[in-house]
């Protein structure tokens, strides 16, 4: 990934994402969706979900991914300057079986106070890398757990990260 590592030095005033949510503060979730660095002429396939729970400094990740068109080589927890900014700054590797196009995620990590702040402000993301897409086939930002209600199912209020 050719991203500038210099982005880490961003001001926290803007980079910190205030999460608009009534969700439980220590439960986070993401849908794993197609990452931007996939070749645009290639197939956009793959899906997954990760749920994370934070207790003290302990972050437990549970999830799955499937439907990839290439074997998985690595899963990583990364950070960026803001929600949706994929700076590719390493936080930790996530344990999973590699070599298959689908799999399950179950990992426990210990976060530093700074990393907890990154989580609280929506700046941590999970990236699934494959042989065909070493810069990321799927990714997803960990945001306060708000289960997806389904397509065209209305919710009261307006949930989003802002």
């Amino acid at each position: 990934m050719s991203f500038k590592v210099a982005l880490i030095s961003m001001s926290l005033t803007l980079s910190g994402a205030a999460i608009a949510s009534e969700a439980t503060a220590d439960s986070y979730r993401t849908r794993l969706v197609t990452a931007a660095f996939q070749s645009p002429s290639g197939p956009f396939e793959g899906d997954g979900e990760v749920v994370a729970t934070l207790s003290g400094r302990t972050l437990k990740l549970h999830g799955h991914f499937e439907g990839l068109v290439s074997p998985v080589t690595r899963l990583r927890l990364l950070s960026g300057a803001a929600v949706g900014v994929p700076d590719g700054i390493d936080i930790a590797d996530i344990r999973t079986a590699t070599g298959a196009p689908s799999g399950r995620i179950k990992t426990t990590l210990t976060l530093t106070p700074a990393q907890r702040e990154l989580l609280a402000t929506g700046r941590l993301y999970v990236q699934v890398e494959t042989k065909a897409a070493p810069e990321g086939a799927l990714w997803g930002w960990l945001l306060p757990n708000h289960p997806f209600p389904g397509e065209n199912v209305p919710e009261e209020r307006n949930w989003y990260a802002k």
Partner: peptide, 12 residues
Amino acid sequence: QKLYPMPGTDGM
């Protein structure tokens, strides 16, 4: 330009 779904939207 490399497009990707917006975080927190489940690809919607």
